[in-house]
Write a protein that binds this DNA or RNA. Structure first.
Lengths: 204, 204, 204, 204
DNA sequence: CATGAATGAGTGTTCATTCAT
DNA sequence: TATGAATGAACACTCATTCAT
């Protein structure tokens, strides 16, 4: 059944092309024609692989998430606790071209999901997966004594993700002010400060 | 003697209508016709008050920023240092309908500015103004002994803004998880932890 | 009754402005707003002096014709026959800025009258007036022995007007190739050749 | 294997439709929608074959010129000198429906080119080609002794074209006064008179 | 009388979609 | 399967026109 393989591969090609266009030229530039051109096909070809344009866009979002997931799981291989947490969070920073494109893509979909409940729902589902993984790593860190037990892991996970996304947004919007090293340093500082700082705040 | 109409007021009405449409229905829904309808006019009226659609959109962005500026300056009246800083940062959180709309609007423009250098330039200019104010308040806090002198004010300001924007994004995307009180608590914790935590990290 | 005078004067001002816009920027640029601006008024003023835009345009055409008529009648004062004919024909050549503008205006209306029977009818009526005058002068020339009697004056008049319009069109379209002196020389040659040449052709 | 359509042929169809609309209903009536309808398609189809509306209009002008060129070259086959000249000039007269449409189209573009330097430039280039051909034929006539050598061929060519265009304009504007036979007779007379008449004028 | 606000139809253009080949 | 032709709706924008002041 070689046709099936080709079919999926073609889909992936087109989805990757869509992701490139969205992240580099913006959602408005991501027309069906432009995506097909980027993939090296003519516009009509999309008809064979996707139901409609929304299907392409959503597939591009999911594919981006899947790729990040694969990459970060591989990077955390053999690690746990704080070390795994650092890798997990750092991997979400726009510290190279690929990650910058991923962040840009994400931001395009954030904007769109604000007025599109179906998309927002997808986003929530996908975000929850990352959240669960961060929580798991925080709990590991607590168990390993690398992290204070005084704060709920759930809250700590949200704080960390929130900060990482904040850094990502700023780095994408103001790249001159947020070179990769600074992004990494900011996250590292945040991770280092958390155990000490949060303990103190829990007293107030 | 022409029809008595306050030209600037009419412009403001339309800009406000545009802002409402953008924040609630998204940038794609913000067509000229939709904006005119929201403002209570026919589509052609925009011709009298704006050069083109981009002029409307940019005006909406600037008006949103100006409104925030006015509000926060009034709220900081009589305050300085850490107290002013807290007000300044908290005012940017989407803790009520109005502020939520402002954040949504901002996020729409973030997405657009990624592929629009002219817009990105405007965003940078406006963001710098906020940044300068935050730095000024951090310096005041340092002088008042409310904040450790061990960290550059510039960096601290960026950390704070980064965190606030991270919280804002999450609160807009996942409102159920980030009720107003939690947003405020997160920022307060961050402010409280900073003096202690940062001092420690500076040793490492 | 001073108001009446003002009213007519204002009309003339606006009509003159319309003629300027049409001849210099073309019929497409001759919007109501543009004409009003050229006249130094706001767009709504036209409502008081004209029924609609077509009224303005047609008035501009008639005014141009009237102006030419006045000028050429004055120039022919005291002349008759061939001398009057030469002045009459030469005055229609685009040999200075004013006459060039008149020819340009005329050509704009020629184009429009092709698909506008009402306008075409006006054009025919106005053209006939000029034609009659040319015929009269040809007849005078014949009577004075300056022109061969062998050819009908009606036909000679059409030939002369046809040639003059041909020169005018070329001079407007290719001004570099048709400086004023050349235009005049061409018409003079044509006038000089006609008596001799036509006599000969009538033999063939 | 795509839908079998001759791309160039379709372009020509649409261009021909545009030419029909322009010549019969005028430039203002030549909207994209009207042209598409005339061609038997929906408005969007033009997107496949032309860059923009100006591309259609210019193509229509060029196609008209090319058609005339082809026709006149075929008609001059085997002829030279005065005989070729007569065919060349007569072919430009609006003596049948087709030629009348061509002249009307030309006049529409004349009007437009007055305020459109880009179009004027195209017109000049195309007109020069005709001019060169007329000059070549005049020179042939001079060499064959059919035409007086006393006048520069360049000037004679311009005189002839000028007269032909004058007749064409009048014939289009006042068709009742210029039936085909009369147009032809006028040009024939002009050609016959030229050798004799011009010789005389050159003495004065 | 003069202004310019307001309307809404019409324009060129872009685009997602469908589909014959 | 892949093409690109064809559709028609939607878009931003321009404009003649009307009219309250």
């Amino acid at each position: 059944m070689p046709r099936i393989v080709d079919h999926d591969k073609r889909r992936e090609e087109i989805v990757a092309a869509a992701a490139r266009v969205i992240s580099r030229e913006g959602m408005d530039a991501a027309t069906v024609r432009r995506i097909a051109l980027e993939a090296g096909y003519s516009s009509g070809v999309l008809d064979h692989y996707f139901h409609d344009k929304d299907d392409i866009l959503l597939s591009a979002l999911r594919a981006s998430h899947a790729r990040i997931r694969r990459r970060v799981l591989a990077a955390m291989e053999g690690l746990s606790g704080l070390a795994a947490l650092r890798v997990l969070l750092s991997d979400n920073l726009p510290i190279d071209d690929q990650r910058r494109d991923e962040t840009r893509l994400e931001m395009q979909f954030w904007a769109r999901s604000i007025a599109d409940e179906a998309l927002a729902s997808v986003q929530r589902t996908e975000a929850d997966e990352l959240r669960r993984e961060v929580r798991r790593r925080v709990r590991e860190a607590i168990e390993a004594g690398e992290w204070p037990a005084s704060l709920p892991a759930e809250h700590a996970a949200d704080e960390l993700l929130t900060f990482v996304d904040g850094v990502s947004v700023h780095a994408v919007l103001y790249p001159a002010d947020y070179p990769p090293e600074r992004q990494q340093a900011m996250v590292d500082e945040f991770l280092a400060a958390a155990p000490a700082g949060r303990e103190l705040t829990s007293l107030s």
